[in-house]
C-alpha cells in the first residue's frame, strides 16, 4: 500500500473543443425529432388500421351505426343500397384505404352522433379541450413545482408530510371519483361553483361564465395528474440536493434559496420534462373522464359519445388524433430535454 505513486487517472489538460454554440444543440434536437417522427408515422398507420380491423371483427353492423333507429325499419333493398354507397360491404382494408385517402384530401366523413361533418366537430370542440387541458396542465405543473420544491427543501417537515401523504392518497383515486367528489362537495354541497356545462343554462357565452365553469373541471383534472408530477419533482430534487455540485454551492456561501432554485432544481427538472411527456396519455384519459362528468363540450367527451353511439367516422379520427397528440407530446418533451441539457447535445 503505497501512498502516492499509484498512477492517478490522467486528465488531459489540452483545452477541449471550443464551447458549442446553441446552434449545435438545435441541430441535435432536429436530428432527434426527425428520428422520432419516422417512428410516429408507422404507429399512426397501424393504430388507425387496427381500429378498422377491430371494427370489421365486431358483431355490430356498421349500417346499424349509420342508420341508427331507422336500421330496424329500413327495407333490405334500402340497406343494400346504402351499404353499397358507404362501401361497408367491402373488405376492411379497402375501407381503410378509402378513409386514409379521404383523410389526406381533408375529407374526414360525417359524424352521425353530432349530425355534422367530422371536421366541424373537431373545429368546434378542440378549442375547449385545449383550454381545459392547458389550464389543468399549467396548474398541475405549477403546483407540483412549488409544493414539490418546498417538500424536498424542508424534507420531513409538516408541509412535506402533509403533501406527500395527500399525494399518495390521491394516486389511489381515479379521476372520475375525484370529479364526482368535487361535484358533490363544491357544486352541490357548498354551491360555490356550477355543476357542469360551459355556461349556465340559457346564459350567453362570456369569459366570466366560461371561467366560472372552468374552475372545477380544471382543478379536478389538475388534481388527478398532480401526485405523479409532484412526487417526481420532490424525488429528483432530493437526489439533486445530495449532489457534489449542490454541496459545493452551499460551501461557497450561497443563500439556501440560490442553492435550491439555481443549482439543485435545474438538474432535477431534466427528468421532470421527460415525465411530462410520458404522462400525456394519462392527461388524455383524465380529460375524457373530466369532460364526461362535467359535460364539458370538448373532444374528449366526444370520444365517449362517439363510442356509446358507435359513431365510427368520428371515433376513428379521434383515436388517430389522440395518438398523434400523445406521440408528438412525448417527442416535444424529448426535444426539450436535448435543448435543456447541454451534455446531451455534446454527445451528438
Amino acid at each position: 500500500m503505497t501512498l502516492t505513486e499509484l498512477p492517478a487517472p490522467r486528465v488531459d489538460d489540452a483545452a477541449p473543443a471550443a464551447p458549442r454554440p446553441p446552434r449545435v444543440r438545435w441541430r441535435a434536437a432536429g436530428r432527434l425529432a426527425r428520428r422520432r417522427l419516422l417512428f410516429v408515422v408507422p404507429v399512426l398507420v397501424v393504430v388507425s388500421g387496427g381500429v378498422f380491423a377491430v371494427a370489421d371483427a365486431s358483431p355490430f353492423d356498421p349500417l346499424a351505426g349509420y342508420l341508427g333507429d331507422r336500421y330496424l325499419t329500413a327495407s333490405e333493398q334500402a340497406q343494400a343500397r346504402i351499404a353499397d354507397e358507404l362501401g361497408t360491404g367491402r373488405p376492411w382494408w379497402q375501407q381503410y384505404g378509402d378513409w386514409l385517402g379521404g383523410l389526406l384530401t381533408g375529407d374526414l366523413g360525417v359524424s352521425r352522433s353530432f349530425g355534422q361533418p367530422v371536421a366541424q366537430v373537431l373545429a368546434e370542440r378542440l378549442p375547449w379541450t385545449l383550454l381545459l387541458t392547458g389550464v389543468s396542465l399549467g396548474l398541475a405543473v405549477l403546483t407540483a413545482l412549488l409544493l414539490g420544491t418546498w417538500s424536498a427543501a424542508r424534507r420531513g417537515g409538516w408541509v412535506d408530510r402533509v403533501v406527500t401523504s395527500t399525494c399518495l392518497l390521491l394516486q389511489a383515486v381515479p379521476p372520475f371519483v375525484i370529479a364526482l367528489g368535487a361535484v358533490a362537495l363544491f357544486a352541490l354541497g357548498l354551491a360555490w361553483l356550477p355543476v357542469a356545462g360551459l355556461t349556465d343554462a340559457g346564459a350567453e357565452l362570456t369569459v366570466g361564465q366560461v371561467a366560472r365553469h372552468l374552475v372545477l373541471p380544471a382543478a379536478v383534472l389538475a388534481a388527478s395528474q398532480l401526485p405523479w408530477l409532484l412526487l417526481n419533482v420532490r424525488q429528483s430534487l432530493l437526489a439533486a440536493l445530495a449532489d457534489d455540485a449542490v454541496l459545493a454551492a452551499r460551501a461557497r456561501g450561497l443563500a439556501e434559496s440560490t442553492v435550491v432554485l439555481r443549482h439543485a432544481l435545474p438538474t432535477a427538472l431534466l427528468p421532470f420534462v421527460t415525465l411530462l411527456g410520458a404522462r400525456l396519455p394519462e392527461l388524455v384519459v383524465g380529460a375524457v373522464l373530466v369532460e364526461e362528468v362535467f359535460s364539458w363540450p370538448g373532444l374528449a367527451q366526444a370520444v365517449v359519445t362517439s363510442a356509446v353511439e358507435l359513431d365510427f367516422p368520428l371515433l376513428a379520427v379521434l383515436t388517430l388524433l389522440t395518438t398523434a397528440a400523445v406521440l408528438l407530446g412525448s417527442l416535444l418533451a424529448d426535444v426539450a430535454y436535448v435543448l435543456l441539457d447541454p451534455r446531451v447535445a455534446a454527445d451528438g
Partner: peptide
C-alpha cells in the same frame, strides 16, 4: 472541493 468536475452544476 474534491473532484472539481462534479462540483459544478452541469446545466
Amino acid at each position: 472541493p474534491q473532484s472539481a468536475a462534479t462540483a459544478l452544476t452541469p446545466v
